[in-house]
Every structure is written in structure tokens, then in C-alpha cells.
Write a protein that binds this DNA or RNA. Structure first.
Lengths: 137, 137
DNA sequence: ATAGGGCTTCCCCTTACTGGAAGGTCAAGG
DNA sequence: CCTTGACCTTCCAGTAAGGGGAAGCCCTAT
């Protein structure tokens, strides 16, 4: 398989596949003309990578997942630990975004959104914390 | 104010403040010794930037917000529009993360997490879509 | 022979900073 | 006067995960 074909079957852009080769995630063979020659298992690996990335795993996590996948003697506990860590990272991100969302939503609701300049959104970002008496030199 | 002091009062790292000067968000004066000399309004601007960034606004959005803030003739509608756009971008991100979260949480619950190699997490990432009969050459 | 599409490498660009090196400045202490 | 240490300066490089595009080779069809 050339890169174009494997791009189609894996669903990844050719650029991405070249990049994955650069960083050592896949190691396709080479034809005599210099073209990359992907075997079926390379394609499977790329599909795996696409799925793992779609679940938000970092490239380095993907590298570990690939290693576990390739290792018949793995313990599922190791995979689960990786996944749980990632899950809690996702939860943290969601929480951060929801905090932002709530603050911003509140401000948006308060803002008249008309032709006048008065704006609670700007006010909330401009508001000086009244505490810095010692730093106001 | 030197950069160290304004870093404390604005809550931003000195590195970040230098970067903001580089990209034209603040324009502090210079002392004869070459040190940046921040005025009170520079400090306010930086505080504003810190708040806007904390709400997730991009640097380019921050640039627009600063311009609106500085413009006495602004319409609050313009600020509100910016904020609403950002709010919906946040909502999109939250939705993406929640999709990931749900899939991953499901897989984690299914995984025994013991010494055995069998792992639904890996299986779900490795599963080949059975559709590609024409591409399996 | 030539056109076109696919492939190659290479380098720069992105976001929003962060780290670090090499060196100038300033105030305190001996 | 000299040193020490904290501060400041600029500049360079790196981060994550690729994307864009140039210059040029390869292959097939006409």
C-alpha cells in the first residue's frame, strides 16, 4: 500500500502518517523507488492510532498503548491505569471549561448588547482588585 | 514599575508580559537603563488580559477586547457578540470532551484491570471496521 | 513527449507561551 | 573598590500535533 491508500483506509491524512513515521510510531518499508510501502499491520496500527487520538490520548500515551497492544503478556491493569489517568485529565478539562462557561454565560446574560458602551463583560475584566495598596507605587 | 513588580500586581509571569509586549498588546516605556517602565494603566491592561485569558479568550480576541475597552464609543453589542462566539466555542469543546469522556468511561468500566492481557480498551481501538473489502489489497 | 497525479524531502507556520544562556544594572556589604 | 546576588536585558530554542507549500522525482496515459 502506498501512503495515499493507507490514508484512506486509516482515515488519517498522509501528512499525519508521515509525521507518525518521523516520530517512530510506524515503520513502513520502502519500495525501490523510495515510496513508503505499508503492510496490513501498519494500516492497522494507524487505525489504532486514529482511534486512540480520537479519544484524546496524547502521542506519548499512544506510544505506550501501542506497546501494550503489541505485548501479549500485558496486564489489562496497565491499560486501565493509563485510561483512568486520561479520564481524570479529561474531567479536569471539562471542569475548567465549565467554570469558564458559567462565568461567561453569566456576563453575557447581564450585558444589554445594545448601542451603548456600558458593558458588564468589560467591567468584570477591568475591575481592579482593591487589595494592592502596597503595590501601587 | 519594573517588570517584576507589575508581574506581581497583574499576576502574570514576567516572561508572559515580555511576550505581550512583543506582540504589541502593551507598550511600556523604557528607563534610561533599558528597563521597561510600566505605568499604572499598563498594569491595568495586563490585569485585564489576565482575566480575559482566564476566561479562555484567545490572544486575538483579547486584542479586540482591549480595543473595545479603550473605545468610549463602543457598543456593548460588539463585546457581547465576541463573548457569545467564545461561549459557543467553549460549548463545542465541552461537548467533544464529554463524548470522549463517555466512551472512555464505558471502556474503563468494562476493563477488568487485572494481570490478564484481555482488554476491551485495546480491543475497541484495534477493532477493524469490517467494511473495507475494496481497500484490503 | 507531455500532462497529470502521486510520491519524496525540506522548511516554515501555527498557539501561547516557557526555559535557558549570556550579559548589563543596581543596591548592599565588606 | 570589589563582590555578591537579585534584578533586568536580548536572543534562541522548544513545546503538541501536525498543516501548507515548494522543488523535484516517479509513473501512467495519451
Amino acid at each position: 500500500m502506498n501512503i495515499g491508500e493507507v490514508a484512506i483506509v486509516s482515515g488519517l491524512p498522509a501528512k499525519t502518517i508521515r509525521y507518525y513515521e518521523d516520530i517512530g510510531l510506524v515503520k513502513p518499508l520502502r519500495d525501490t523507488n523510495g515510496y513508503r510501502a505499508f503492510r496490513t499491520r501498519d494500516a492497522h496500527k494507524l487505525t489504532f492510532l486514529g482511534r486512540a487520538r480520537a479519544l484524546g490520548f496524547s502521542i506519548e500515551d499512544c506510544r505506550k498503548l501501542l506497546a501494550l497492544w503489541a505485548d501479549d503478556t500485558r496486564a489489562s491493569a496497565d491499560v486501565k491505569a493509563l485510561a483512568k489517568d486520561h479520564l481524570s485529565a479529561i474531567d479536569d478539562k471539562i471542569a475548567d471549561l465549565q467554570d469558564m462557561r458559567q462565568t461567561l454565560d453569566h456576563l453575557v446574560r447581564e450585558c444589554a448588547g445594545d448601542h451603548r458602551p456600558d458593558c458588564p463583560i468589560l467591567q468584570s475584566m477591568a475591575r481592579q482588585t482593591v487589595m494592592n495598596s502596597k503595590a501601587s507605587g
